[in-house]
Computed example of a mutant assay.
Amino acid sequence: MDIWNKLYKTAAKEYRPSDVSPFVYARSVVCALEAEDGQIFVGVCIESCSGVLNLCAERVAALNMYVATGQTHIKRIIAFRDRPPYGGNSGMPCGACREFLMQLDPRNKETEFMVDYSARQTITLAKLIPNWWGTETSISQD
């Protein structure tokens, strides 16, 4: 089984759109990512009546990875609703996720996102967020 198939199947198990409360809806978008060490982590979206409180599946997966292992570097990500990414803008992370992943670890610029699952077409975060402002910022990691 190729890694993309493994990521897809892992994320698909989490797809169960449901109301958590009258104000919160979850699991309508799912994500699986491959960490630098090869481990796979999942995330689900959590949407609320107040958009600012929403959490995207990609950020939840990245946070699950960090909390579990301390890792910040991501190799691959697949995110989708009821079917795998099929081209166009399907499977693409929102601007907040793009920014978060770059801030989490600038090496994530090489993270591959699945664009079209059947064609195995991917795109890197660097192409999704060109000219990232943080490239010029010097961050000490003492």
Rank of each mutant, 00 (worst) to 15 (best):
D2F: 12
D2K: 10
I3N: 10
N5V: 12
K6V: 11
L7Q: 05
L7M: 04
Y8H: 14
K9I: 02
A11N: 07
A11G: 05
A11F: 11
K13C: 07
E14F: 14
E14P: 09
R16S: 15
P17I: 03
S18H: 15
D19E: 13
D19C: 11
D19I: 11
V20Q: 11
V20P: 01
S21E: 09
F23C: 07
F23S: 11
V24S: 04
Y25C: 01
R27E: 10
R27W: 06
R27A: 14
V29H: 03
V29D: 03
A32F: 09
A32D: 03
L33M: 14
L33W: 13
L33K: 10
D37A: 12
Q39L: 12
Q39T: 13
Q39M: 11
I40P: 00
I40S: 00
I40F: 04
F41Y: 15
V42Q: 09
G43H: 02
V44H: 06
S48R: 13
S50P: 08
L53Y: 13
N54V: 00
L55I: 11
C56Q: 03
A57R: 02
E58T: 01
R59F: 07
V60H: 03
A61K: 14
A62W: 01
L63I: 04
M65I: 05
T69I: 13
T69W: 13
T69H: 09
T69Y: 11
G70M: 12
G70Q: 07
T72F: 04
H73S: 03
H73G: 02
H73K: 15
I74N: 01
I74H: 01
K75I: 04
R76H: 07
R76D: 00
R81T: 09
D82H: 14
D82V: 10
P84T: 03
P84V: 12
P84K: 11
P84S: 13
P85Y: 08
Y86A: 09
Y86I: 04
Y86D: 05
G87N: 10
G88K: 05
N89D: 10
S90Q: 08
G91L: 04
P93W: 09
C94S: 11
G95D: 02
C97T: 01
R98D: 00
E99Q: 08
E99R: 12
E99S: 11
E99A: 12
F100L: 00
F100W: 04
L101E: 01
L101K: 01
M102N: 02
Q103W: 03
L104G: 00
P106H: 04
P106I: 10
P106K: 08
P106S: 09
R107P: 06
N108S: 00
K109I: 08
K109L: 15
K109H: 11
K109A: 13
K109Q: 14
K109G: 14
T111F: 05
E112F: 13
F113I: 01
F113R: 05
M114Q: 05
M114L: 13
D116A: 13
D116K: 12
D116F: 10
Y117P: 01
S118P: 01
A119F: 08
A119M: 06
R120C: 02
T122K: 13
I123W: 08
I123P: 04
T124K: 14
T124Q: 08
T124P: 05
A126L: 00
A126C: 00
A126D: 02
I129F: 08
I129R: 06
W132K: 13
T135D: 14
E136I: 03
E136K: 12
S140A: 12
D142W: 15
D142N: 14
